[in-house]
Amino acid sequence: MFLIYCPYCEEHREEEEFHPKGQAHIARPADPEACSDEQWGDYLFFRDNPRGIHHELWVHAVGCRKFFNITRNTVSYEILETYRMGEQPRFTAEYPEGKPAEAAAARAEEVERQEGVKA
């Protein structure tokens, strides 16, 4: 059972309030009429389906009813982050520990917070 943090409600809620909606970040072709059959078929049907870190679209169906994204490990099922539409993931297959620059910044922030008062 997942406990999912809805980035809009800003609360952890039970899995049953949500519905998965497949792979995230699939951009609809700007001009569908100009697509070849290959491009259109790829857009409609072909998916990444990775074993490991995956970015998914979910909807908070019986909550705020807003769509948002989850970065999740498809083997361990660990949820690494949830983020709003239009935002980019911090954890990716390439950077499972978080993107270096952002991770460093986040770590610095953490250190700062833990060390208490600083000038």
């Binding site: 497949g22 792979q23 078929g41 790829d42 049907f45 998916r47 990444d48 389906n49 990775p50 074993r51």
Partner: peptide
């Protein structure tokens, strides 16, 4: 279920979700 993983090794995608 692992077909997608094999397809990735061979360098193409499949219209499958596991």
């Amino acid at each position: 279920g692992n077909s997608g993983v094999l397809a990735k090794m061979a360098g193409f995608r499949l219209p499958l979700e596991s």
